[in-house]
Simulated scan of single mutants.
Amino acid sequence: MYISISPQKLGDHYGSSAKDFISYLEKENSGKSLDQKTYFFNHQEHQITDKEVVKKIDANTAKLGKKIPKYYSVTLNPSQRELRHIKENPEKLKLLTRKIMEDYARCFNREIDGRPVSVSDIIYFAKIEHTRFYSEKDLQVRENMPYLKRIAKLKHDLVKIQKGELQESMSKANALIRKEINNAPHKLNGSLIDVGVQKPGPQSHIHIIVSRKDATNRYSLSPGSKYKNSTTMLNGKKVHRGFNRDLFYKKAELQFDKLFAYNRNYVESYTARKTLQKNPATYYRHMMGLPLTERKLAFKLMQQAGLIPKVANISPAQANRLLKIFKRAADLAIKSSSIQY
């Protein structure tokens, strides 16, 4: 599971309303009838309209200036393997979201009226989306790009040929286009994968908008704070501050595993991804120490992620040679969120 936390988008200053962001989250409802639409939900309610979300988020921004975000966006991205495990059941995704948001509250190093922050102090609204589209960040698009650029030029030349502006053979140009398409590494149903193409397989994910202010509109709760667990003096009083992101990410995985009896492979874990970014050799050694069946699954998942070439049966000797290959690809794949375990 890949999780991201980001503040309200910054232009010249932070906007006073969540309207634009909520409108973006309504994109899958476009053109659908009322009974086909999906709604927002929170810890207690199931069918919350976009207008209600905007109203409640916008009303909870006391004493937040233009240079302070009014809300944060949390995105929960279960992997395709995780989604298949729960059969992409929306009710299970809602249950998971609610459990994760309980942990979100617990990961604040803050107190409200002398007690730890709880989910009842958090104002949040979540929505499940079921489709994703390739972007310029995806490995498949990046590797296809040289071919796509050459094809675009060849098609431009075809137009010139048709207009008589270029004295070339149309059949030759078309043959070159077919050659580029055949040589391109990533295709979907015979067509090249490009920006805007819908991704195949289960793609459900959850968008969550969380108010920066607590439910009383008195306290600021920022998951973006650079202070994990620290204290500071405010008006002569010692005040706790910070949000532990590492703990939050780990707890989210544990919630999924516990709720749905999921056997997480090492390479699927947040700890492994972090190790891969910082010390690929340690990551590899840990993986090679896994039991044989777990190791085979680990390599299969890495192949699906594009970290190593696809090999039918990987021996330890082959694995050693592949280490150098996946080291080069690892950082790019993770930074682009292209890992789809």
Results as ranks from 00 to 15, higher is better:
208 I>S: 03
261 A>T: 14
28 E>K: 15
11 G>L: 09
99 K>N: 12
170 M>F: 12
68 I>C: 05
87 K>A: 11
91 E>R: 12
309 P>T: 11
58 D>V: 03
322 L>I: 02
143 E>T: 12
195 V>Q: 05
273 R>V: 02
214 D>G: 03
228 K>L: 11
140 Q>F: 02
48 I>P: 00
204 S>H: 07
195 V>C: 08
82 E>H: 04
112 I>H: 04
91 E>K: 09
15 G>S: 14
57 I>G: 01
265 N>M: 06
130 H>M: 13
310 K>V: 12
155 K>P: 02
326 F>L: 07
103 D>N: 13
65 G>D: 11
318 Q>A: 04
66 K>W: 13
269 S>A: 14
303 Q>T: 13
71 Y>A: 01
282 T>W: 05
297 L>A: 13
2 Y>F: 11
72 Y>F: 11
121 D>C: 03
106 R>E: 08
173 A>Y: 02
8 Q>T: 11
115 R>P: 07
106 R>W: 06
169 S>I: 03
220 S>V: 08
221 L>S: 01
194 D>R: 07
138 D>W: 04
139 L>T: 11
225 S>F: 00
43 H>M: 05
191 S>A: 13
136 E>V: 11
62 A>H: 11
165 E>V: 04
173 A>S: 07
277 Q>M: 15
320 N>A: 13
115 R>Q: 15
267 V>E: 01
123 I>Y: 04
243 F>V: 01
113 D>E: 15
54 V>L: 10
109 N>K: 05
115 R>M: 10
171 S>N: 14
123 I>W: 03
114 G>F: 06
161 I>T: 02
167 Q>I: 02
279 N>D: 15
238 K>V: 10
304 Q>C: 05
171 S>G: 06
72 Y>W: 11
57 I>C: 02
89 N>Y: 03
39 Y>R: 04
123 I>H: 01
308 I>C: 05
127 K>L: 06
310 K>H: 08
19 K>D: 12
217 N>P: 01
320 N>V: 06
43 H>G: 14
170 M>R: 12
297 L>G: 09
76 L>V: 09
211 S>M: 08
74 V>M: 04
85 H>K: 10
129 E>M: 13
326 F>G: 00
98 R>W: 04
244 N>I: 08
114 G>D: 08
289 G>T: 09
132 R>E: 08
184 A>W: 01
73 S>L: 15
188 L>D: 08
291 P>G: 04
112 I>G: 08
183 N>D: 12
278 K>F: 01
96 L>P: 00
168 E>A: 12
155 K>C: 05
182 N>C: 08
174 N>Q: 14
183 N>L: 14
303 Q>H: 04
230 S>D: 10
122 I>L: 10
169 S>F: 05
274 K>T: 12
3 I>A: 06
30 S>N: 09
312 A>R: 14
50 D>R: 11
36 Q>R: 15
328 R>G: 02
